[in-house]
Amino acid sequence: MVNETARAQPAARQRAAYTLWQMSRASEWWAYKFAPILATAYATAASLRAPLLPVLPRLLLLLLALTVGATYVSLLNDWTDRAQDQAAGKANRLAGQPAGRVVAALLGCLAAGLAFGSWFWQLSRLAALLYLGAWVAYSLYSLPPLRLKVRGAWGLLADAAGAHGFPQLLTAVLVSTWAGAEPTAAWLAAVGAWALGCGVRNILWHQLGDADADTQARVNTFVVRRGRRAGRQLARVGLLVEAGGLAALLYLGGLGLAFLALLLYGVLVGLRTRVWQQPVVVAEPQPGRPILLNEYYEVYYPLALLLTLTLRHPADGGVLGLHALLFGLHSWQRLAVWGALLAVAGSKVRRLLHAERG
């Protein structure tokens, strides 16, 4: 009996972990959120000419701390959106979950977040405040009575700050601290502008895609209040801020390979537009059309930065291996398009050669 109980415990823990993974919708945000955040860690280390491998254990703890926060916001959003999702006919992964299970998961996240916040406080008070800021933004976005999600531009700002701004700034501050350097105001300003511009554009992407359902459920997001045209216009403003921040990062950090990767991504966008008739979108979702620059942030940008670090500090190749372990499948799926493009180009060359010989 004791042996059977002992064998059952790991299985029960695995089932609980899988249930939490499903409840948190982690598969939807893992690469989208965390590859760009780690890219900021890589970019900060590269700008400081500091090796990344010595701080890798602490970087993994930062990733775990941010995972706890992302899990919290996913659970909180779905839990507070149940009535509206039902009214709009949208699926909600927590609709059938027992309230006790959801509350326990939220409390667990809060407890873990408090522990990480205490650790950050010992390292840097600024880092601790940035980590706290993300949690506050998460909570104010979803929870009544404020529930900034339905308060127009305040909802955009809360989501962009909680999901992008605070985590990115936290990463830059911590990597600088671990490298024994003070983060410069210019670097933090560039990170902040890039992250907030990107965050505003991405939350507008969600709101534009959900506009009909939100209107039906009377969820007064910015797009529902102001209309799709205003949402698209604001997304373009966000893109300008984002592009300015990115340009500043590449310049301040001397990130030449990341700039070349951006050019390579631009070639891909051009080929998709001209050859496959799949132009990117600035914000509004359209079938088969990816959102501009997200693929660069998730794949090309971090890989170019890791290559930069590895060329300077060969031992950082271990970090490249770990990144491949964490995001390899996602990156491979995005990079496989080059194989298809080369195959198409090769086929056209062969046809031309055959025609000339004929």
Results as ranks from 00 to 15, higher is better:
50 A>Y: 11
50 A>V: 03
52 L>Y: 11
52 L>N: 04
52 L>V: 15
53 L>C: 04
53 L>G: 04
54 P>A: 01
55 V>W: 04
55 V>E: 01
56 L>F: 14
57 P>Q: 06
57 P>G: 05
58 R>P: 05
59 L>R: 00
59 L>S: 08
60 L>E: 07
60 L>R: 08
60 L>T: 13
60 L>S: 07
63 L>D: 04
63 L>G: 15
64 L>G: 12
65 A>K: 03
66 L>I: 14
67 T>C: 09
67 T>L: 10
67 T>G: 10
69 G>D: 09
70 A>N: 12
70 A>K: 03
71 T>H: 05
72 Y>S: 07
72 Y>R: 10
73 V>R: 03
73 V>T: 15
74 S>D: 10
74 S>K: 01
75 L>G: 01
75 L>Q: 05
75 L>D: 01
76 L>R: 00
77 N>V: 09
77 N>M: 08
77 N>L: 07
79 W>E: 14
79 W>S: 07
79 W>P: 00
79 W>N: 06
81 D>Q: 07
81 D>M: 08
81 D>T: 02
82 R>T: 12
82 R>E: 10
82 R>H: 07
83 A>Q: 15
84 Q>Y: 11
84 Q>L: 12
85 D>N: 05
85 D>H: 02
86 Q>G: 15
86 Q>S: 14
86 Q>W: 01
87 A>C: 11
88 A>D: 07
88 A>P: 12
88 A>W: 00
89 G>R: 09
89 G>L: 08
